[in-house]
Design a binder for these strands. Structure first.
Length: 760
RNA sequence: GCUGGAGUGGCGGAACUGGCAGACGCGCGAGACUCAAAAUCUCGUGGCCUGUAGAGGCCGUGAGGGUUCGACUCCCUCCUCCAGCACCA
């Protein structure tokens, strides 16, 4: 098993600390790592520190740069001038995924603004289809909700791209629709405000200036509005008409604020009767509403009395030759016809956008290219890597990338022509770092490659990955993308990096997630100081099952401390007597056991069965802790343990208890283990096996119900036959009293469990 | 709005495949030990009711209905909370 630890060490927190407190990011980061490592060590976690990695180490980030060059070679990394999300507080670009409700994911109260910049992108969309398809491989091992989120994020939809020719002009407006069956109900064609045709159409308009002013206002409004989804529909009518290629109608062309340039073709047909947004738009501007799909059941809809659009599939009406077809059949037929007549073609569209990785920040991986006036963008050759991040950079928190202000860094030589060149000053999104870090664990010291094929072939794919649900989309989608690129480069030979995924709940403080980016992490270190590492470990396990969110509170930690102390005293009290005695072990003879011995061994093995199941199947460690508490309580109830319990049997029970405790509270378990006279380490002892015969219960308590209500219990030997069990139930005096004078109509008997008598 | 998930005592939470609701712990109450306190130990602790109180009854898992001999668990409707997505055509 590989159980490593490493540090996702680049990124904004270090840089913000530098700006706020004047600390050097590297020193601040190394300091934090040392502190974290101290706490983890204090808790006794068994990480393999030989494999420790840190993403801000040049020996790590050089491979980010290496990967970037491979992507560049394959045209999977490219530069594009684009409108990007810009956080005025971070003064950097944010990926779409980092924009939360129109605000920065780190600064909820800071609206994101749009800015035009030359940016580096990774072409994740080239893998959109494969990322979607390969989720089939993850169905058995990943939580459904993560897959659903990724599926929605990729957002594949099948539709038709269809051409609406402008009347009296050469140009054609292309529209994307998933509902070609509603095309006879179109009342207009709507363009995104940024649509490339807009300037051209405005230029030849008579009221050009007025329209341009309106457009400016619309754009400004769109930017300000934090919640675009709820913004009011706005339109600007243009003095142009297009021809509906199916119906032949001429339709007006509008600019509409709710049409997105980035999705589809940046233009849509407006079908008010069958789309919510179009309905609102048409209502506001009094465009004609035409019903062309009727519900397959119920009353027919009238355009004049329509209160809400009918967005479901149905049966076509008023649709020329397609009237009478179902929506499904019409979509099929009309798509084919459009293709044949050369007016459109079927197309897949994705919501997923390419991954913008440029950051105008210091504390990240430098993007390894130079800009040469003669040769353009020139990659840094592999042998020149890593491009090192310079030290002693002044961080003011203002303006552009801090690296641009370091002349020694910026001034470079072109690797192609040898002339003067300017070094790229953008750094990479830290999600690049985390997209492949787990591969590096398999071969952390490799100096010629990010990792060797052999090491990865031995360890990968990951059997079990544990991460917060917060990473459901970003990190886990990027990692899957990286894996596929690595496969295509020939570095790995699997399609998916992670077979099984477990999503941990978050630890909350006052209702918000504790996270390093928020800096509100509390607890662990002080807890270990006050109560000791074992109590801290036990408490975090006991508080809740791991997939659930947990509001942090130290209420109840006393219980764990008390339990460990109680257990410690119990074992120590008997240790002297047991030190030189061998444990009864496998060889124990059931026939010679006293009542008390039998009871203790049974409970011990039943506990072992429960804990083993919790560990292996469910990861519900809170119930494991409870089971150990119960076993300890049983031992207390059976005091004095000197009486009727042979030392070898008691030692067996103690041994089992300590072996079960060891993964949760290793320090105290190890110490007690030694006190019991063991010489080898408990930590190197294998997990014990359940002894089924010892765990078995000879006497069972059977529940007796009358009409489903609990009325009594009876002790029987296990494995009793149905009819016998029924007789025993009826023979019980209390039950007899209940059914006196009534008829037993039916008896449901579940062997070894219950008898339910149906009585009238 | 769409898609997921959750809702159980004063609190954190158990109940695994439809079969004893509330394991375990916290808190609280009573008692033992003590001059006293802390620590420790013991007992009790969902609500309501009862004239056979060391017993028994009724109600109870967000609300209402249903399926079933039997429902925290399955189905339908609704409410609340959390998360993700959100003019994606």
């Amino acid at each position: 098993m590989l159980h490593p630890m490493g540090w996702d060490a680049f990124g904004l927190p270090a840089e913000n600390a530098a700006i706020q407190h004047g600390v050097e990011p590297r020193a601040w980061t190394l300091n934090n790592i040392a502190e974290f490592k101290r706490v983890l060590t204090r808790f006794g976690f068994s990480y393999d520190w030989r494999r420790e990695i840190s993403t801000c180490d040049p020996e790590y980030y050089r491979w980010n740069q290496w990967f970037f060059l491979r992507l560049l070679e394959r045209d999977l990394a490219y530069r594009k001038r684009s409108r990007v999300n810009w956080c005025p507080k971070c003064e950097t670009v944010l990926a779409n995924e980092q924009v939360v409700n129109g605000a920065c994911w780190r600064h909820e109260d800071t609206p994101v603004v749009q800015k035009e910049l030359e940016q580096w992108f990774l072409r994740i969309t080239a893998y959109a289809d494969e990322l979607l398809r390969d989720m089939a491989l993850l169905r058995s091992g990943w939580p459904e909700r993560v897959l659903v989120m990724q599926e929605n994020w990729i957002g594949k939809s099948r539709g038709v791209r269809i051409r609406f020719p402008l009347i009296g002009h050469e140009d054609v407006i292309e529209v994307f629709t998933t509902r070609i069956d509603t095309i006879y109900g179109a009342c207009a064609v709507l363009l995104a405000p940024e649509h490339p045709l807009v300037p051209k159409l405005l230029a030849t308009s008579r009221q050009r200036h007025e329209l341009e002013a309106q457009l400016q206002a619309m754009r400004r409004h769109a930017v300000r509005e934090a919640d675009l989804a709820t913004a009011e529909k706005q339109g600007i009518p243009l003095a142009y008409q297009v021809r509906n290629p199916f119906s032949g109608d001429s339709l007006p062309v509008w600019i509409a604020n709710f049409v997105l340039l980035e999705y589809g073709t940046g233009a849509v047909m407006c079908v008010p009767a069958h789309d919510q947004r179009d309905f609102e738009f048409a209502t506001k501007y009094q465009l004609p509403v035409r019903v062309v799909v009727q519900p397959s059941q119920g009353e027919a809809l009238e355009a004049t009395s329509l209160r809400a659009p009918m967005v479901d599939y149905g049966v076509l009406v008023n649709s020329g030759p397609y009237s009478g077809l179902s929506s499904e059949a019409a979509i099929e037929q009309m798509s084919r016809d459009a293709e044949q007549q050369g007016i459109g073609r079927s197309e897949m569209t994705y919501r997923l956008r390419d991954w913008g990785i440029s950051r105008q920040r210091y504390w990240g991986t430098p993007i390894p290219v130079v800009h040469c006036e003669r040769c353009g963008v020139v990659p840094v050759p592999d042998e020149e890597l890593p491009v090192l991040l310079p030290a002693n950079v002044s961080l003011t928190g203002r303006g552009q990338s801090p690296l641009a202000l370091v002349p020694e860094f910026v001034q470079a030589r072109c690797y192609r022509c040898g002339g003067a060149a300017r070094r790229e000053t953008d750094t990479m999104d830290t999600f690049v770092d985390s997209s492949w870090y787990f591969y590096r664990y398999t071969d952390p010291l490799n100096r010629t490659l990010p990792f060797s094929r052999e090491a990865v072939r031995y360890w990968f794919p990951i059997d079990q990955y544990i991460g917060g649900i917060t990473h459901a989309i970003l990190h886990l989608l990027y990692s899957r993308f990286f894996c596929k690129v690595m496969r295509d480069i020939g570095l790995v030979d699997h399609d998916e990096p992670i077979q099984r995924l477990f999503t941990q709940g978050m630890v909350l403080k006052g209702g918000v997630a504790m996270s390093k980016s928020r800096g509100n992490v509390v607890g662990a270190a002080e807890m270990a100081e006050t109560y000791g590492a074992d109590t801290g470990r036990l408490y975090t396990l006991f508080a809740a099952s791991p997939e659930k969110d947990l509001e942090w509170s130290e209420q109840g930690i006393e219980g764990c401390a008390r339990f460990l102390q109680r257990l410690f005293r119990l074992v120590v009290r008997h240790a002297g007597r047991l030190e030189h005695v061998p444990a009864a072990g496998r060889a124990v003879d059931l026939a010679t056991l006293s009542e008390k011995e039998r009871h203790l061994l049974r409970r011990a093995h039943q506990t072992l069965r429960r804990v083993t199941q919790d560990f292996e199947r469910r990861w519900h460690f809170n119930t494991s802790v409870a089971a150990l508490m119960e076993l300890t309580n049983t031992l207390h109830e059976q005091e004095p343990l000197e009486q009727d319990v042979r030392p070898s049997v008691l030692k067996e029970v103690f041994d089992l208890l300590l072996q079960m405790l060891a993964p949760m509270a290793p320090h105290i378990a190890e110490e007690l283990w030694e006190k019991l006279g063991h010489r080898e380490l408990l930590a190197s002892h294998p997990w014990p096996d359940v002894h089924p015969a010892l765990a078995e219960e000879e006497q069972l308590e059977i529940v007796i119900q009358i009409n489903g209500k609990l009325r009594g219990k009876v002790l029987v030997e296990s494995g009793l036959h149905e009819s016998e069990l029924r007789e025993r139930a009826l023979a019980d005096p209390r039950i007899a009293q209940f059914i006196a004078g009534k008829t037993v109509r039916k008896a449901i008997v579940i062997p070894d469990k219950l008898v339910n008598l149906v009585v009238s």
